[in-house]
């Protein structure tokens, strides 16, 4: 079977000016590959600022003008060119954006959802979509500023799922929603996937991710550091990379323990393992190697020389 979405060796750079006309290139995503097959929910988790949203935006071709993308993005086996994505986005490929600022503040919810269409069929479709997420007809008459954070989220999700999409890119769709609502929404994503859609689910909520996803991809400093099966998150011993383990231990119910330090800023990356600054099992070899390869390991993939070592606690 052909993947719905196939990303091959994607790299994203930003060109920035500093001190007058001195230009500088910042690499924010390096050599990223990812596949989503029909019927699959792939969760992307990882550090804040590791490039998760940029990945979403690069698929939809809505990155800022000073960005430069290398690598290939294939949709349904064919290259996703700017002309093609422009035709497909909003119908076959949809985005649930992260920020509620993506709603037009000057347009009523109903009007902006329907994108100008007024026929009864479209109206009915969006009424059903809103209703599915617990929003009544009265919501259509509200302006975005009158919505609560959770309601705005649900409006954006309704907007994305009312068309029958083949690829949904959901960029943190659940913050601000209570567990019941979040579960319902992801249950619906699961249904869409079971009908043959592919879903890229960007999230910080590992618990939700492991419930709904088939695979979980973990990002750190613009790279994939681990690909795990969803069920691996049930037991920390099944996780491969020390950062993934650190995420697990930081969950409020698993100890709420933070590791010290923070992810290196794109301009300050050194050679060797990028997680070295926060890793408690870091060895000299981890710093000396030019790059650490992403390699198959124990049914998943990992970018670490000594995976599964304890010492994170």
């Amino acid at each position: 079977m052909e993947p719905v979405l196939q990303i091959k060796h994607l790299s994203i750079d930003f060109t920035r000016y500093e001190r007058g006309t001195k230009r500088r290139r910042l690499t924010v995503i390096r050599d990223l590959s990812l596949e989503i097959y029909p019927g699959q929910v792939v969760a992307v988790a990882g550090a804040s600022g590791s490039g998760k949203s940029l990945l979403a935006h690069s698929i939809l071709d809505i990155l800022p003008h000073n960005s430069h993308v290398e690598g290939e993005i294939l949709y349904d086996g064919t290259l996703l060119t700017p002309e093609r994505i422009e035709r497909l986005r909003g119908s076959e490929i949809v985005l649930v954006p992260q920020g509620v600022s993506y709603l037009d503040p000057l347009m009523k919810v109903g009007t902006q959802l329907r994108k100008g269409k007024k026929d009864p069929g479209t109206k009915e479709r969006y009424r059903i979509a809103l209703n599915r997420y617990g929003l009544g007809e009265e919501t259509e008459e509200l302006y975005p500023f009158e919505l609560s954070g959770g309601m705005a989220r649900r409006v954006m999700i309704a907007s994305a799922s009312a068309e029958s999409p083949r690829l949904i890119i959901a960029d943190e769709p659940t913050p601000g929603l209570d567990a019941g609502t979040a579960g319902r929404i992801l249950g619906h994503f699961r249904e869409l996937a079971d009908e043959g859609a592919g879903i890229l689910f960007i999230t910080h909520d590992l618990e939700l991710a492991s419930e709904v996803a088939d695979r979980v991809v973990v990002f750190y400093a613009g790279e994939t550091i681990e690909e795990a099966r969803a069920e691996d998150f049930a037991d920390v011993a099944c996780l491969r990379h020390p950062y993934t383990k650190a995420l697990w231990y930081a969950m409020p119910k698993h100890g709420f323990k933070p590791v010290q330090g923070s992810q290196p800023y794109p301009g300050q990356l050194r050679s060797g393992c990028h997680f070295a600054g926060q890793c408690e099992t870091c060895r000299e070899e981890c710093l000396e190697r030019e790059t650490i390869p992403l390699r198959p390991y124990d049914g998943g993939r990992v970018r670490c020389l000594y995976p599964k070592e304890e010492g994170q606690v």
Binding site: S50, G149, P175, H204, D205, L247, F256, S262
Partner: peptide, 15 residues
């Protein structure tokens, strides 16, 4: 709801 958009390690650090 200040931490839902942060990764779990940063959440724990901030709290």
């Amino acid at each position: 709801e200040i931490s839902a958009m942060l990764d779990l390690v940063t959440q724990a650090q901030i709290w």
